[in-house]
Design a protein around this nucleic acid. Structure first.
Lengths: 240, 240
DNA sequence: CGATTAATTGAGCGGACTCAAAGCTAGTGG
DNA sequence: CCACTAGCTTTGAGTCCGCTCAATTAATCG
């Protein structure tokens, strides 16, 4: 239940924040939210900004307020794989562990609301609802990771690209009506798409033009995509 | 703290169960354990037995008592990808959702301890410790899924097979000393390995012989593997 | 507008796949 | 105990998809 008509109990910094509605902060009561808000700092990152480096001990968690964050893994010889994409108002960070072999990087402009690890860890202990909210997000991420493993392991290049476009469309416009046309901006470069899909830039590009020539998508300025018939693209993505 | 000297409070069926120590049941107090144990049933599955089918509404959760469980995804045209491997005493099931597009299948003989969904869901609400334990397992699975995405997306065939062997070795013998030789039985067929790694049976087989000829492994009866030098195999797996 | 980066397109190569056949294992029954 | 079968695994030959290397075109930004 949103109590926004008289929300004087809600900390000022949190009032307009989406994380209170669709993110983890929704699991906190006004007192807890106030306690947390006293330790939050807003951070802004430019495109390609590194939010946390691989192997770094991060003593911060964050909510994503705006933008898209890439989670990437790197091999010694430079091969790279994006293993997670996070959108506002997702929670960011690995609960119960400070270290991680992941790099978090801004894809476009990103705004975070960060808070110290120990503050949230304490709140988690006090609030089962908060742990539940974090648990739900972990499970969503796990479901997504597994879908993606199917894509990485078994799909062809064109199926991968089609799957990716549908994934982005679903994330950027969660409540779109079925089967209607969708238009959106890809928040990733071709290089990022390649790292996401386990392909090369060139192959991604070739499949994009292939999809365009099949009239399954239209492309404006390399970024703006329209999918005239989502179901038809989904058939390609699923190899039907 | 293990209270096993006088454990008359522990239900009989749970006394010898590893899930109480390394699994989720460790988060339950004796009363809760008793309540749960009244609804548990033991189930046995033969090799290739289907524990839950894709799309099926499962009203059961389980602990794996013995054996290895494959979680697989299937495409309309039959392409298959293993997206998770679970070992005793893992918890099995998707909390807070009855449906799932996953199939769970026994790899070799499997013994489960199953219990109704609503019983555990109620226990979760009463016990933050239980939710925490489940959350921790979800996070471990997510970490593993992401490692694996790197493998699927960016590694060559021989690197994939090497990575797989190291993964299995780590799971079957979690406390082995570093760098010593390891011997174990692969709990999967070549076909399963292929579905795990996004390869074909033939390619898996070729890479196995290649690793054997490089003296990185020895193979007995197609199943029993010895890794004489784990670090050297790890270098192959990481492309060094 | 020029400079720089991102994306596309082309030609040729190679690693993993496909199709095919032979070798092993384990299990069965004579 | 051994022949026989069925399934799994290995090996071989040839093909193709996606990669590499290279050049061109398009977008972005001062």
């Amino acid at each position: 239940m949103r109590k926004d008509i008289h929300n004087s109990e809600i900390p000022v910094v949190c009032r307009a924040c989406e994380a209170r509605h669709r993110g983890v902060c929704g699991a906190l009561n006004p007192d807890q939210l106030l306690a947390l808000s006293k330790h939050t700092t807003r951070k802004q990152y430019a495109d390609h900004g590194e939010l946390v480096a691989a192997g770094e001990v991060s003593n911060q968690y964050s909510n994503i307020l705006r933008g898209v964050v890439k989670l990437t893994k790197l091999m010694p010889d430079g091969r790279q794989q994006i293993v997670g994409l996070q959108f506002a108002p997702d929670f960011m960070g690995r609960p119960f562990r400070a270290d991680s072999e992941l790099t978090a990087e801004a894809s476009g402009e990103v705004q975070l609301c960060s808070f110290p690890r120990d503050i949230l860890d304490k709140l988690i202990q006090q609030s089962p609802e908060l742990e539940h909210a974090l648990h739900e997000q972990s499970l969503r991420e796990l479901d997504e990771a597994r879908d993606w493993m199917m894509t990485l392991g078994r799909k062809t290049a064109i199926e991968k690209v089609a799957s990716f476009l549908l994934l982005i469309a679903a994330h950027l416009d969660p409540e779109r009506e079925e089967a209607a046309a969708v238009t959106f901006d890809i928040p990733l470069t071709r290089a990022d798409m390649a790292d996401f899909l386990g392909l090369t830039i060139e192959t991604v590009s070739r499949q994009m033009t292939r999809l365009r020539k099949l009239d399954l998508i239209t492309i404006k300025q390399n970024r703006t995509i329209t999918i005239p018939d989502v179901d038809r693209l989904a058939e390609i993505a699923d190899g039907i």
